[in-house]
């Protein structure tokens, strides 16, 4: 007679996490599986070598060596700093303002780019498109549940627009690298460095693009796709590189290093974000729909790697938005009473 615990006693995965099973000690199947997964270290080492080689061969050829998807959060700040200081890349920092970027994050962006001597541009899509996009992502089944194992639907929409806008910029300026601040746990080890295969990605996203078009019309293509006129001119696609995965600092190390170049922790965000006011709301919706947090997988990975403690992870998960903040965001996004009630049913 065994009852399933609410969470794994080693990591923070919930009993409602897909395919999870617990042993008699309350340890989850993901923690047990981890014991015999020796391939990841070798994959990371290969990625590291490949990154150094690619940077060596491409550096200094274009106006910029890399476009950095720069949110102003701690992970992307650390990544930007590493690209500039350690790898000596000429970087153009690219920020997407979804309308909910924390003002403190913008102050960080300004300070850090000045300190590192980096050019920066912000793209703010019209709220006329973006607010309905957020709403549709929250209320309709746009993405498959598998995608939503590691990311909330709203974050996934937002990051898709970030990726597409950064790719557009890279193609226009013939920049060889796109950098992002993803960590292992957010992406798989073999996603650390890869050539952007736009045509295939585009094909593979068609199912959800069609769902978005049903609600939002063909404006979706302007934000999620690259125009043929640009693709036809393209000679080579950039590499996507996630430097943070090979640097692999602890969270404490990261905070310490970026504080030295002027990064200050924003106070108006939830425990899992260091730049976006919407993140806590996204987690709230995800939790309602799936009964686990979209951050559990990443935090559990970090715990197993010794990058944070289980207590720190639990602290982040419990640092959620106050109900009145959630209500205010819903108002800002023009949710109706019925829509709010329908969430998670």
């Amino acid at each position: 007679m065994t009852t399933s615990p609410e969470r794994c006693c080693k990591c923070v995965l919930s009993s409602s996490f897909p395919t999870i099973a617990f042993d008699e000690n309350g340890v989850c199947s993901f923690c047990r599986d981890e014991m015999h997964m020796p391939t990841e270290a070798a994959t990371i080492e290969r990625a590291q070598e490949r990154i150094v080689e690619l940077f060596e061969s491409e550096r200094g050829q274009a106006e910029y060596d890399a476009i950095m998807c720069y949110s102003g959060g701690k992970d992307s700040t650390y990544t930007l700093m590493t690209a500039v200081k350690k790898y000596n890349l000429k970087v153009l920092a690219f920020t997407l303002d979804n309308g909910f970027t924390s003002p403190a994050a913008f102050e960080n962006i300004r300070r850090i780019c000045d300190e590192l001597g980096v050019d920066q541009i912000t793209f703010a899509p019209s709220a006329k498109f973006f607010k309905p996009l957020i709403k549709v992502s929250a209320l309709e089944e746009v993405y498959s549940p598998k995608t939503l194992v590691r990311i909330s639907a709203i974050c996934n929409s937002c990051i898709s627009v970030v990726n597409n806008s950064a790719l557009k910029l890279a193609l226009e300026k013939e920049v060889p690298f796109i950098l992002a601040g993803f960590t292992l746990g957010q992406i798989p080890a073999n996603g650390i460095v890869y050539k952007n295969n736009y045509h295939f990605f585009r094909e593979s996203r068609e199912v959800y693009l069609e769902r978005l078009r049903d609600s939002l019309g063909h404006a979706v293509d302007d934000y999620f796709c690259i125009k043929d006129s640009l693709l036809n001119k393209t000679k080579a696609f950039p590499y996507n590189v996630n430097l943070l995965c090979v640097e692999d600092p602890t969270e404490a190390e990261m905070f310490q290093v970026i504080a030295q170049i002027g990064w200050v922790s924003p106070r108006d965000v939830d425990g899992c974000s260091s730049n976006c006011r919407l993140n806590g709301f996204n987690n709230f919706i995800h939790q309602k729909n799936f009964r686990y947090s979209p951050y559990e997988l990443e935090l559990s990975h970090l715990i197993r790697k010794g990058k944070i403690t289980r207590e720190e992870a639990l602290q982040k998960l419990s640092d959620t938005l106050q109900p009145e903040v959630i209500t205010a965001i819903m108002k800002e996004l023009a949710f109706s009473e019925e829509e709010i009630k329908a969430i998670g049913r």
Binding site: K146, N190, F200, S204
Partner: peptide, 11 residues
């Protein structure tokens, strides 16, 4: 079928 996303292809 929603088993993988485009990142899954890289994997």
């Amino acid at each position: 079928e929603g088993i993988i996303d485009s990142f899954g292809l890289i994997e």
